[in-house]
């Protein structure tokens, strides 16, 4: 808060400073003042369009001052959001659906990103060079590394196993953080790992691993990955701010689409992820979207139910703000 105020005071002077104090109480903004939103982010490619909107002043153009607090893994996002410490949080679709099932009432206000239509996409199942297994059936009795159990990677790895003739219950899923997955595979700690960018393309480029399959694409096209959520209470009380946030984000999506190969885009992404800019060229980027397909989210929820991650029915329509629903 102090940092945010300091920035504002420097940039906008006393008038805005006073206005932001006023707005910190949750009041709606008048047309020319800036509303400060505290947003929890995750320093991965999923947030690239959002970071573009911040860096290019697209939120400011909407009268929003964005104060980001990145958290690796995003574990702090939803609890802090529910506690009212934040106004918006970046989170992944599985976590959001789980939060909705626990009646925390998250509302998706920016559609975030999705996987693509065809491989290479955002995550691949990797193995040691020359490994013989190609299907889930081949992997029975073996070990698959996932970054965390009960999340999107785990879910699609399990479904891929089933889809390719294997029984997920006969496979040992172990947790290995993404940065250590290649080492774990190379040193025979695990048989395979479901690895994401930018680690995947770096390992492929160094030709130290094989990609066995692309579980995301094999199971479902255009999977919704990560979105921005607010609480229902905040959305109901601040319809104007929500609209401006969504517009700012959407303009970030447009800019990212138009400038995806530009050095400026690479610099923005590199600045917030710390991934060297030259690595980005080889890396697959998510598809940034302005609208969500209800069917895509329902498909994720169905998988969660099937694999025992979700016990209750969740009203998907209530979870997605009408303005971001296709």
């Amino acid at each position: 808060m102090q940092k945010a105020l300091h920035h504002q005071a420097r940039r906008w002077g006393r008038a805005i400073f006073v206005a932001s104090l006023f707005l910190a109480g949750g009041h709606a903004a008048s047309a020319q003042s800036l509303t400060t939103l505290r947003v929890s982010t995750i320093p991965t490619f999923d947030n690239a369009a959002f970071e573009v909107a911040v860096a290019k002043g697209l939120f400011e153009a909407e009268g929003l001052k964005i104060d980001t607090t990145p958290t690796v893994g995003g574990a702090a996002g939803i609890p802090a959001l529910v506690a009212g410490q934040l106004q918006a949080a970046s989170s992944n679709i599985v976590t959001i659906i789980l939060a909705a099932s626990q009646n925390l009432r998250p509302v998706i206000v920016a559609a975030g990103d999705t996987t693509g239509d065809a491989p290479p996409d955002l995550a691949g199942l990797i193995a040691k060079k020359g490994a013989s297994f190609k299907t889930g059936k081949d992997l029975e009795g073996k070990t698959i590394a996932v970054n965390a159990r009960n999340n999107i990677i785990w879910l699609y790895a399990r479904e891929w196993v089933e889809k390719t003739g294997g029984d997920p219950s006969k496979i040992n899923f172990v947790e290995v953080p993404f940065p250590q997955m290649v080492d774990a595979v190379q040193n025979d700690r695990v048989d395979t790992a479901m690895l994401v960018e930018p680690f995947l393309s770096a390992a492929v480029k160094a030709s130290i691993i094989d990609v066995v399959s692309w579980p995301y694409s094999a199971v479902q096209k255009r999977i919704p990955v990560a979105q921005f959520v607010m609480t229902k209470a905040y959305v109901d009380a601040n319809p104007d701010i929500v609209g401006r946030f969504t517009r700012g984000y959407d303009r970030g999506v447009d800019w990212a689409a138009a400038n995806s190969g530009s050095p400026e885009f690479a610099k923005i992404v590199s600045d917030f992820t710390k991934v060297p800019a030259d690595r980005l060229k080889d890396s697959a980027m998510p598809v940034f979207v302005k609208k969500m397909e209800l069917s895509g989210v329902e498909a994720v929820a169905a998988l969660m139910k099937k694999h025992g991650l979700l016990k209750t029915d969740v009203d998907m329509k209530a979870m997605i703000h009408p303005s971001v629903l296709k």
Binding site: P43, T44, T68, T69, P70, T71, V72, G73, A75, A76, A80, P177, F178, P179, P198, F199, A202, T273, K274, V275, P276, R279
Partner: peptide
């Protein structure tokens, strides 16, 4: 675990930033 400052966050983000 939480937040965007300090060495703890720096270690995490540089690890994930390769």
């Amino acid at each position: 675990i939480a937040g965007s400052a300090g060495v703890g966050y720096f270690i995490m983000v540089t690890q994930y930033g390769m």
